[in-house]
Design a protein around this nucleic acid. Structure first.
Length: 287
DNA sequence: CCTATGACCTGAACGC
DNA sequence: TGCGTTCAGGTCATAG
């Protein structure tokens, strides 16, 4: 479910309700997440006051007044929901947090790829996380430096959280369409002007997606159980067989390193020619 | 250091 | 109706 725009949506909804609130009660229902919940999960958080809620990449960070940090990652299928909604949403509940104002939110995660980590004041955390794509740090020179010697394909690079934090499969596809770059283009063939297009496309797509409260394909719901709407704006993602919004070609779907990718063969021609070192196959397609 | 691959989970959609 | 297969928004550990 969650890439940067979805996590940002959740943070914006949570912040006004939880800021300054004391955590009255934590319930743990299912500790078996990507990393098992710490045995002191409840006692670490109970009676702490939430100072702020921030997003970093795809992480939600609750900064506590004590200086402790509570980090939440939603994996593929994690949801944060206010209690009181239709009970059908509350399957696979992992934990809940009740605040002094009576509000309570629950973490539900069927696939259990998400996790929650706790940090003491001054303890290092997220040390390997890359820069924020919506920050000024993310500019064409930064991207060009990161990719200039890489053979990895650009879509994979965009999804590398150590380089840029927050982009996943949906937005990588949409960004590369917007930038007219084929998803499998090796990083090292992209010039500074391509990097410029990719950076601009990244900021544009992510901002739009945030404005639409993220994307709901099947799993994502906001804290009130409502879907995002950016899926209505998809140019390529999950649109294979449909018409490109720009050129009337048919959107293609393919797969690479166990991830689907989607592209327009006409609009996304920036790619690498066949590697000259590679031996050519003796047989062309017959006939 | 870099790159590619499998593993971790459940549920939904699809084909037979 | 049921059973098997494939796929899904992410990340990490491992091997070369």
């Amino acid at each position: 479910m969650p890439e940067l725009p979805e996590v940002e949506t959740l943070c914006r909804q949570l912040a006004p309700q939880v800021r300054g609130q004391n955590i009255e009660k934590i319930h743990v229902y299912e500790p078996r997440l990507r990393f098992p919940l710490a045995s002191n999960f409840g006692s670490f958080l109970e009676d702490q006051t939430i100072f702020s809620v921030k997003r970093k990449g795809k992480y939600i960070l609750f900064h506590l007044q004590s200086g402790r940090i509570w980090l939440v990652h939603l994996g593929m299928s994690g949801r944060l929901l206010w209690t009181g909604l239709n009970p059908k949403y509350f399957t696979h509940v992992s934990w809940s947090a009740k605040l002094q104002n009576g509000k309570e939110f629950m973490y539900c995660d069927p696939r259990r790829f998400g996790f929650s980590l706790l940090f003491e004041p001054n303890e290092a955390y997220l040390t390997d996380l890359g820069i924020e794509p919506l920050s000024k740090e993310f500019h064409r020179g930064y991207l060009h430096n990161k990719i200039r010697n890489r053979t990895r394909d650009i879509k994979n690079i965009l999804m590398d959280q150590k380089i840029i934090a927050g982009i996943g499969n949906i937005y990588a596809n949409e960004i590369l369409f917007q930038a007219n770059v084929h998803p499998l283009t090796p990083g090292r063939v992209l010039q500074i002007e391509h990097c410029e297009k990719i950076v601009l496309a990244t900021k544009k797509i992510l901002r739009q997606a945030i404005a639409f409260q993220g994307t709901s394909i099947s799993d994502f719901l906001d804290t009130n159980g409502k879907q995002g709407r950016f899926q209505k704006r998809f140019a390529v993602y999950a649109r294979n067989g449909k018409t490109c919004p720009i050129c009337d070609c048919t959107i293609q779907k393919d797969s690479h390193s166990q991830r689907s990718f989607f592209y327009c063969p006409e609009c996304q021609k920036i790619t690498v020619p066949q590697n000259p070192k590679k031996k050519r196959n003796a047989n062309e397609k017959s006939k």
